[in-house]
Simulated assay, not measured.
Amino acid sequence: MPYPLTLDQFSTMLDTLYQGPLENIPWTSFLDKLKNALASKYATFILRTPSQQVDGLSISTSGSSEAVTAAYNQHFYALDPFVGLPERQVVSLIEFVSVPDWLNSEFYKNFMEPTDVFHVLGADISTPEGAKCRIRISRGRSDPPFDQNDKDLLTLFLPHLERAVVLHSHLNRMESERNLYAGAVDQLAVGTIILDQDGKVLQKNRVAERLLETKDGIKLVNDGLQVGTSRDSQQFRQMVKQALLSQKSSNPSVVEAMRVQRTSGLADLGIVVRSIPPSEWSEGKYCPAVAIFISDPEQESSAPQEIVRALFDLTPAETQMTLLLANGLTLDEASEELGISRNTARAHLRSTFSKTGVTRQTMLVRLILRSVATLG
């Protein structure tokens, strides 16, 4: 069956293919177009093949059953005879498995036949990063088998699909790293806000969102930031302006700081403004240009007790008292909070000093707040 694609049709399909990594469910638009172009029932892209060690990850066209996909990933993948295809080569099922063997296989009888899938066209691709992917196109038993024109059409897109998978892997790795670092900054109770080249807010972490919601010392106005008094705002705007000028001229990173009083009477916010050096090939107005870091002295340390105990070999009682001291309480306030005598609290403190190798309460607090416990 011939499938003459016009240049516009081919370009449209390529557009959806390379747009695939940015979709909420990758490549769904491309798979739908490919399914229609090949007059098939389903098009499925297996991004991660299932095994006993890991769950499979597959994307199917609209109309596919999630239950069927789950059944394949949990059980039927081990029975699938249409695997291990020649690398980057489009193959039809009847070239790989004889029709009698296919009809008599448990995989066909229990998995494919109930969904009226008989003809299958497929290809396997691997990327330099180690991804092993499969694309499968299927038709019902009453449909015509796949022919050479079908194979040629799918072959056209294979190298582009491989490149798109590589892009997806890079984007996914960058997103994972970004989420890891963002989570670490959240644990440190530091608010971070990223501004673009116009000084507008691009993104913010959860700590910054909570601070902005209170509108106490800093707030969001027309996608920009307003801090403290009018004098504070003037100083802040000047700091951001300097950071933007430094960023645009590719000068060494500018770092400036200020304190902002809060109308509530809570402790002043500490704000650091830092320019973000542009990457060599960055372009467009929505690139990160300035980073704003905000410290809130009222924010308590969130170091988990179990991690502090494991790091410093403390008892539960010593750990509780140490965290109270790290959050700014005096020894008397900590003993009252824990319902113990001052002598008991002092005994806990001496034991903690011995285990951590410090000799003063201020050193202990510094040790806890600068340890990896706050990242737990």
Rank of each mutant, 00 (worst) to 15 (best):
A257Q: 14
S301Y: 09
S246Q: 12
M239G: 02
A303G: 03
Q261E: 10
Y286M: 14
P278L: 05
I271F: 09
I292P: 05
A291K: 01
M258Y: 00
F293M: 13
P277C: 03
V290E: 11
R237S: 14
V290P: 02
E256N: 09
P277N: 07
P304N: 02
E298S: 06
R274K: 03
S250G: 15
R237L: 09
Q299T: 07
A291W: 01
Y286I: 12
W281G: 07
E256Q: 13
Q247E: 09
M258W: 04
E300C: 08
R262S: 00
S275Y: 07
Q242L: 13
Q247V: 08
Q247Y: 05
E298I: 01
M258E: 06
L245C: 05
Q305K: 07
M239L: 07
L266D: 02
P277Y: 11
G265M: 03
P304R: 04
V273Q: 13
Q238E: 12
C287N: 14
I292A: 05
L266P: 00
S302M: 13
S264A: 11
K241Q: 11
C287R: 15
T263L: 13
G284I: 07
S279M: 08
I271D: 06
D268R: 09
Q242R: 11
P297H: 00
P277V: 01
T263S: 15
D296P: 00
S246C: 12
S246G: 06
I276F: 01
Q261M: 15
S295R: 06
A257H: 06
P297Y: 03
L266V: 06
S301A: 06
L269G: 01
S302Q: 14
M258K: 02
S279G: 15
F293V: 06
A243C: 06
E300F: 09
K248Y: 12
M258F: 02
L266K: 05
V290Y: 01
V308F: 00
R274H: 08
Q242W: 10
A291M: 10
R259L: 15
S246H: 11
I294N: 00
I294A: 05
Q247C: 10
G270T: 12
Q305S: 13
G284V: 03
V240T: 04
V260N: 00
E300H: 12
V308S: 05
L266G: 01
S282F: 00
W281K: 11
F293W: 11
V308W: 01
F293C: 15
S246P: 02
Y286P: 08
S264R: 14
A257W: 09
E300N: 09
S282Q: 12
E306W: 07
A291C: 06
P288S: 03
S279P: 02
S253R: 14
G265E: 00
L245M: 07
I294R: 00
Y286D: 14
V255P: 08
A267G: 13
W281D: 14
V260T: 01
I307Y: 01
S295I: 13
A303C: 04
Q299R: 07
Q305D: 11
Q238F: 06
K285S: 13
K241A: 13
